[in-house]
């Protein structure tokens, strides 16, 4: 009998300036198939340029999960979308992202409100992932 306990869920919400994808459960080797499918479906439905992936409710992420985030990132960037990650108080996921150097690709944000406020205050459109990352890094330096 299979007693697998790892599950993965995804919820998408759109607000005025961005779309948000909540990743919940385990983004790991044995949930990768379902996760990949759900993430690709979510990306296809999103009509905003900025996508915030909220990873704060992930119970666990492994190297396969990190690779899936990269896969999603590449697909999104090809569609001229920009991605940020929200970690909230999930220190374990935040640490794994930091060890994997994901802060060199994504703004890694503790509070979604901070990013939302920053996006709302911008006068020009964010044209690329590099631009979003740079704006976020400058914001962090100033605050």
């Amino acid at each position: 009998m299979d007693r697998r306990i790892s599950t993965f869920e995804l919820v998408t919400v759109s607000v005025e300036t961005y779309a948000k994808i909540w990743l919940k459960g385990n983004l790991v080797y044995h949930t990768q198939q379902a996760a990949r499918q759900k993430m690709e479906m979510a990306l296809a439905e999103i009509d905003r340029n900025i996508v915030i992936m909220d990873v704060s409710q992930l119970l666990f992420i492994d190297s396969t999960g990190l690779a899936l985030l990269i896969h999603f990132f590449k697909k999104a960037v090809c569609q001229n979308k920009q991605i940020a990650l929200v970690v909230s108080t999930n220190k374990t996921v935040e640490r794994i992202l930091a060890i994997a150097k994901f802060d060199k690709l994504f703004p890694i944000v503790e509070r979604e409100e901070d990013l939302a406020r920053l996006l709302a205050s911008l006068t020009k459109e964010i044209a690329s992932q590099e631009m979003l990352l740079k704006i976020w890094q400058n914001h962090c330096i100033q605050n």
Partner: peptide
């Protein structure tokens, strides 16, 4: 290093072990 495989879609597992 993990930075070398930043955009890769595999090859992180052992590097994470080495790092931690």
């Amino acid at each position: 290093s993990l930075e070398d495989v930043l955009l890769a879609e595999s090859g992180r597992g052992l590097l994470l072990i080495k790092e931690t």
